[in-house]
Structures are given as C-alpha cells and as structure tokens.
Design a binder for these strands. Structure first.
Length: 479
RNA sequence: GGCGCAUUAGUGUAAUUGGUUAACACGCCGCCCUCUCAAGGCGGAAAGUACGGGUUCGAUCCCCGUAUGCGCUACCA
C-alpha cells in the first residue's frame, strides 16, 4: 500500500471549459503538485446523447495553454488507461455483474413512461420523488423470463434501507445522510453504458485515486458512492467538495449572465496567470498573515491547502478580475507582453511591422488597459494621422504656440533620442525659458503631436513617436 | 415537497481553532500629483459578523431553532 497522492479531473466533454471546472481542475492540480502527487485527466463520456465533436481536443488544448499539465490521460498515457470511460465498458459490465451476484444490485424493467408516471403520482401526493424500488419484488424467474424475452432493462443499486451514511469531507467536515433518502440509482443504463456513479467509483478505485476533489453538486450523491465502495469492499477515497461559483445574483454561474468559458476569457485578453491566480483565490485563502493577492503558480502550489478552501459559494466579481489582470499587465515582461498584444493590434487594423515602435506602444499602453482586447483602441493614437479642425489649428497657430515650438525644436534636436522619461524635463525647460505653463503650454504640443485634446501623458507620446517623428510633426504645424 | 450544504461591509476574503477599535483587497467617494485620461500616493464611507435562543466571566468562532440562498432529488454529468 502506498500513500501517493493521485487526483483526477474528470469532465464530461461538453465542448468548452466552464470557469467552475477550471477552478476545480486548478484545485486538483495545486493539491497534486503541492503533495508531489499525480494529476490525472479522465474523460467521462458515458452519455452518448451529449457527445460533442472535438471537445476533448479542445479541452486538452486549453489545459496546455493554461500550463496545467496532466501526468496521465488521453494523449499522455499512463498505467491506468484507457482514460476514456467509453472505452472501459467491459470493465463496468464486469463489476456490475459482481454486484448482481453479491446481491447489491438488481434488474429493473420499467419504461421511461412508467417512471414518469410514478414520479407524477408521488408529486401529487406530496411525496419524495424517487424510484419506488418495485423491481426488488421480482422473483428470480420473473427476471429470467423478462431477460430472455429481451425487454430493455437497467441495473439498479440496492440501497441498504433504514441506515445512515456518514462521511467526512475535507472542506465541509462531517456529513450524514439517511439511506432511505438515497435513490436506487441506475448503475448500468439500457444502452449498456454506465451512469456517472458506477463508472466514477470503479475508475477512481482502479486508477488508485487517493482524493476526490470535485464540485459541490456531487455532495448529495456521495452516499451512493460509499454504498458502492462498501459493496465492492474497496477503500473510499478522501473527499473534498468545493463550493460553486455564483453570478452576482447568487445563482450558479451560468451562460445566461455572461461568459463562463475559459476560452472566452482568454480571447478577451485575460492573461492565463491572472485567471489561475484569480480562480485560486475564489474560495481559497492561504491563511492568516497573508495579505498578498498576486501569486505565481509556483507560489500557489507551495501555499495550497485544500482544507482552507471556503465552504460557501463565491460570487464571481469581474471588476476584481479586471484589476488583477491590469496588475499583471503592468508587471509583465515587456517582450512577452508585446508578443501577446500584437494579435490584438493586428485585429484592430494596426500594422505592427515596425517592431521597435510596437514595443514602445506596448510600454505606453500597458498602464491604460485592463485586458488585451483594449490594446488596439488605446494604441490608436500612436498610429493616427494628425488632423486638426479650425479651432484646434487656431490654438497651434498663436504666437505663444510658435514660441513653444521654436524653443522645443532646438532642444529635441540636441537630444540623441527620446526616452521614456527625458521628454518631460525638456518641456519643463521650455516652460522655464518661455514662462508659458499649464494648458497654454501643453495643449499646442498635444495637438501638434496627436491632433487630439485628450490622451496619455505627452512624455509617453513623444517616446513612442520618436525623435524624428516628433520633430516632423511639430515642424509641420509650425510652418 | 424531501434531503443536503451554506450565511462576516456591495463583492472576494481574514480574524493565533472563545478575549482585536472585526483586518486586507476590489469597487465607491474625496484629496494630492497633473495639460487631459489612466496609473500612482494619501485619506474616507461602508459589516457589529442573517435572525432568535442557548453554553460561557466572555462568542464571528461551540450547540439548537428560524429565515434566506444554493445544490441534489434523471437510463445528465
């Protein structure tokens, strides 16, 4: 027996990665890495009606992009494959037969309509809606006959009655549920595919999963799983059910109220570092005395502790996400950032072939954007032609303006080049020498350089345009 | 309806597992910087810990009840 930590992320391939799933996966990842364990991907594709083409490839791509690497899974390999549940049907069948043989499961032959009718009646009687376990009454011969005549059937879990299941959740503590509340869950569907509950338990056991970290929506089905583990005589993995992520109105985070897919956030220009950092802190905190909120993934791994995950749902606050993303953008390595920004610039119709200028532009705009898709808009001013209307031309044409321009031209010409912070002192110098200050000084300059009355600080603009262009633009206005 | 889980400023969280003026961050407001817009700096408003009972010398923290929210209640996961 070894104590290796092995956790899994087990999504059903729905076509995109929900933020809630990303966080669940992240918690699994952090937990695995923190404990030098293994992080496994298993695809739960047992619902044939919900199959989505290309979903698995897409999923794996996103994880690669996010830098969350699996140790085992589809396309990666591992000793416990296959990692698609749809390829493990024989295994489920075999274990289901074992359950049948041991009397922990039974055949059931109701049609969908019969079940619906049963539920309808229960509802009108104000009773709990669950399978009334009627097929438990079938005699051995009746079952044999029905089987022989080819009536479609499912196999159900024979839940032990009048007892109680207790378990400990790493996040929630002790939970207790009476078995009479537990449905005789279908284990094997009439199409021969297992339900989540059966496949999940068998795979977690066979794949040596030590800890199950998954969404809160599974909490109430834990008793079914425990009954199964017990029926097989298997050890129950340690459980941790993480809280849900909520919309601002506290409902479960859903597509109706905005984007929920990780891909969408990436597309808008939220950095993967931001997303990881932010999602980790949504419902988790490293503990007392820690006021930082910006963490690298390595730091998160070092700090992570599943027991410190909060047990209440957390509202997804996009304002704070924006703030954090802006923080990352401001600190990011400039070359890497430039590389990331270029596609957004191009998408906005900006030509980035002058790579030196592009980099200067990124330096200039990084303090002004929350996410990368705002880049083109912010950068526009650096690529726009100077066009002034009559009123603006009047400002740049005054005697005062001419004085400023003449003075400035000489100074700029003597500069080797305009750097990020040497233009401002030059303007101050002009101010001293001409006695012109404030708006009178800056507005003519701003207009001459950009043709616009608002914008980033002049020093930045001059830096991006460069010495040559600055002189050219001022001289053009100063004719 | 039944069962389960949750509940600290608008939001995310903290509070040495009973003793603090209940802290930090986002957001908001104001001031400073300043040609403008951001960024940055400084400051402020904002919860008496859902409510009601206990236990205790003392409860955000432990127990019970109520309310509210959410989850589950499928041959979906």
């Amino acid at each position: 027996m070894n104590n290796e930590v092995r956790v899994r992320f087990a999504p059903s391939p729905t076509g995109y990665l929900h933020l809630g799933s990303l966080r669940t996966a992240l918690f699994n990842y952090l937990f695995a890495r923190h404990n030098n364990g293994k992080f496994i991907l298993r695809i739960e594709d047992t619902d044939q009606s919900r199959k989505v083409e290309g979903a698995v490839e897409n999923l794996i791509n996103i994880f690669n992009e996010m830098g969350l690497n699996f140790d085992e899974g589809p396309g990666i390999g591992g000793d416990f494959g296959p990692y698609f549940q749809s390829e493990r049907l024989d295994t489920y069948k075999k274990y289901c037969d074992e359950l049948l043989a041991k009397g922990h499961a039974y055949y059931s032959f109701e049609t969908a309509e019969e079940l619906e009718e049963m539920r309808r009646v229960q509802l009108t009687q104000g009773k709990q809606t669950m399978y009334d376990r009627r097929a438990r009454q079938l005699t051995e011969n009746e079952v044999k006959e029905k089987l022989a005549s080819g009536i479609p059937h499912v196999i159900r879990l024979k839940v032990p009655l009048d007892s109680e299941i207790r378990f400990t959740d790493l996040i929630r503590g002790n939970v207790k549920i009476e078995t009479n509340q537990v449905d005789d869950q279908v284990l094997l569907k009439s199409d021969g595919y297992p339900t989540y509950h059966l496949a999940n338990v068998i795979d977690d056991h066979l794949m040596n999963i030590s800890h199950i970290i998954r969404g809160e929506e599974w909490l109430t089905s834990v008793p079914k799983h425990i009954i199964l583990y017990n029926a097989f005589g298997w050890k129950v993995p340690i459980m941790a059910h993480v809280p849900l992520i909520l919309n601002p109105d506290k409902s479960k985070l859903s597509k109706r109220q905005g984007d929920v897919s990780t891909e969408d956030f990436l597309k808008k220009g939220y950095l993967k570092e931001t997303l990881l950092n932010f999602m980790a802190l949504l419902g988790w905190h490293p503990g007392e005395g820690e006021d930082r909120e910006i963490f690298t993934i390595e730091e998160l791994i070092g700090l992570f502790n599943i027991e410190r995950v909060n047990s209440a749902g957390a509202v997804f606050n996009i304002e704070k996400l924006n703030w954090m993303n802006a923080e990352y953008i401001k600190q990011y390595d400039i070359d890497k950032l430039t590389e990331l920004v270029i596609p957004y610039l191009n998408a906005g119709g900006i030509d980035t072939s002058d790579s030196a200028k592009t980099k200067r532009v990124v330096v200039a705009i990084r303090n002004y954007i929350n996410k990368l898709d705002e880049s083109a808009e912010q950068a526009g001013i650096y690529y726009k032609k100077v066009e002034m209307d009559a009123a603006q031309r009047e400002i740049t044409g005054t005697e005062i303006s001419k004085q400023i321009f003449d003075n400035l031209i000489l100074k700029v010409e003597s500069l080797l080049e305009i750097t990020i912070d040497n233009f401002k002192p030059v303007v101050s110098q002009v101010q001293k020498e001409t006695g012109i200050k404030g708006k009178d000084l800056f507005m003519p300059l701003r207009l001459a350089l950009t043709g616009v009355e608002h914008g980033p600080e002049l020093g930045l603009i001059a830096y991006v345009l460069g010495k040559e262009e600055v002189l050219k633009r001022i001289k053009q206005v100063n004719q």
